[in-house]
């Protein structure tokens, strides 16, 4: 600590007792100070976490009444596209038939849907993040009937699973629930 203080000046701490008291006090003060500083810094860091208005948009409700069988719609959720696909019975059958078909990311179709006729996927290719084509009938859907990512040629099937191409995993299924027959809450 201080070198010259004990040499100069008339008074000095009374031996060990003074030293111990000073050390405890130093420790206690330092602990309080460091704790206070941490508490003071925390708001600055937490302010970078999503703000209340961002969090308010972290769930959306979608009215799916008007989506006919065979129709696909896109909604925006947390800044990303979400594909909602009202599947026909043939599409569901094809999706389930391929459950064992040597999938790069094996997953049964029934594990990817709550109601088989509604497929809900995050429309972001798991390779490098492009938005796959296939939402509109005029767009290519790839060799497996689902979606096709034009950036590097990933093909997804009727269940949104990766079948061919560089993407490592299936299209993500977001957290969602049916509020009622015609309303989907995502997130």
């Amino acid at each position: 600590m201080s070198h010259s203080a004990e040499d100069t000046g008339p008074g000095h701490p009374a031996g060990d007792d003074g030293e111990t008291r000073r050390d405890f006090l130093t420790l206690a003060t330092a602990a309080l100070g460091v704790g206070g500083a941490a508490l003071a810094v925390w708001p600055l860091i937490d302010s970078m976490n999503p703000a209340a208005d961002t969090l308010a948009l972290s769930t959306i409700e979608v009215d799916i009444k008007a989506v006919k069988p065979g129709q696909r719609i896109t909604v925006k959720w947390r800044g990303k596209p979400v594909f909602i696909d009202h599947r026909t019975p043939e599409q569901i059958k094809k999706a389930e038939a391929d459950d064992g078909a040597g999938l790069p990311d094996p997953q049964a179709d029934k594990d990817r849907v709550k109601k088989p006729e509604w497929l809900v996927l995050v429309g972001v290719c798991t390779h490098l993040g492009c938005v796959p084509l296939g939402q509109k009938p005029s767009q290519p859907r790839g060799e497996f009937g689902g979606w096709f990512c034009p950036c590097h040629g990933s093909h997804y099937d009727f269940s949104g699973r990766i079948r061919k191409g560089p993407a490592p995993t299936n299209l993500e299924v977001p957290q969602y629930q049916f509020l009622n027959e015609t309303t989907l809450r995502i997130g």
């Binding site: 000046g9 008074g11 701490p13 003074g18 000073r22 006090l25 508490l39």
Partner: peptide, 22 residues
């Protein structure tokens, strides 16, 4: 309240540190 407590500790420590000079 925290600052009052902390400042009191600071003051006590200051007095201790300076006691050999006063």
């Amino acid at each position: 309240i925290f600052l009052i407590v902390l400042t009191a500790f600071m003051y006590a420590l200051k007095r201790k540190v300076w006691s050999d000079l006063h």
